[in-house]
């Protein structure tokens, strides 16, 4: 098997409960390299719980998670090295500059100073943020902070990028810029993306869809496949049917 044939992410039979309340129920799906997978689900569907399990903030004994073929529980170090994350809440240090934030992340991933400098420049330039590298994050607007967070998540060149509702609270142009940028990343660099959202307009026609509702996968496939199985004409309609029927 070649490296590229290995899914960037495999989730198999994953369940998780908060006490007696089941948050995820035998969730299974895979994300291939270069693929942008939209994890679509209403609020409370279990998206953030799923992300917390993939990032090993939580741990579940039921089911498996593999990142680039590495089991998150058994080989967490290799698995997490292949993972870049943009969390729902901003996780930048507001009192530090863009550069200081990025250097901190680079050091956590073991990048040498020279390598970190080069990667930071590369990622910031790609997003038109290099000129603002010496500014404190507090001075940046929400859209620019998100760009810095995406740059940060990519510094160590992961194979899988997770984004947990990254456009929440952003204005329309900033949202569009980020959605465009991440989709371009998939096609240009071959990175796999798992993007959690409840916003239908963030989906592009070549994206793959995983619809999560009440902790279970209700649909998994390309847009035409999902439309076909649901008998819907639009993604919005399909989403509505999937989340209504199962409710």
């Amino acid at each position: 098997m070649t490296l590229n044939a290995t899914p960037a992410l495999t989730v198999a039979g994953l369940s998780y409960a908060y006490g007696k309340k089941k948050a995820l129920d035998r969730v299974s799906f895979a994300v291939a390299p270069g693929e942008c997978t939209i994890l679509l689900g209403p609020n409370g569907a279990g998206k953030t719980t799923l992300f917390s399990l993939i990032t090993r903030l939580y741990d579940s004994r039921e089911g498996r998670i593999l990142i680039a073929g590495h089991d998150v529980r058994k080989e967490f170090s290799r698995a997490l090295a292949q993972l870049g994350v943009v969390f729902q809440q901003t996780t930048l240090d507001l009192d530090l500059t863009v550069l200081q934030n990025l250097h901190y992340h680079a050091s956590l991933h073991g990048l040498s100073r020279r390598r970190a400098d080069a990667r930071i420049r590369e990622e910031l330039e790609r997003q038109g943020m290099f000129e603002r590298r010496k500014e404190k994050v507090r001075q940046l607007n929400g859209g620019h902070r998100r760009r810095v967070e995406i740059a940060r998540a990519l510094l160590h060149e992961p194979r899988l990028l997770l984004l947990d509702e990254p456009t929440v609270g952003l204005d329309v142009p900033s949202r569009k810029a980020i959605v465009d940028y991440v989709h371009r990343l998939c096609s240009d660099s071959g990175i796999a993306v798992l993007w959690a959202t409840h916003l239908i307009d963030e989906i592009y026609e070549n994206d793959r869809l995983v619809v999560l509702h009440k902790g279970a996968v209700r649909a998994d496939g390309s847009i035409p496949e999902v439309l076909k199985t649901t008998g819907a004409e639009t993604v919005g309609d399909a989403f509505h049917r999937l989340t209504r029927e199962a409710a």
Partner: peptide, 9 residues
């Protein structure tokens, strides 16, 4: 911001 720390390998 604690998450950034905890998800590093």
């Amino acid at each position: 911001s604690m998450k950034t720390l905890l998800v590093c390998p």
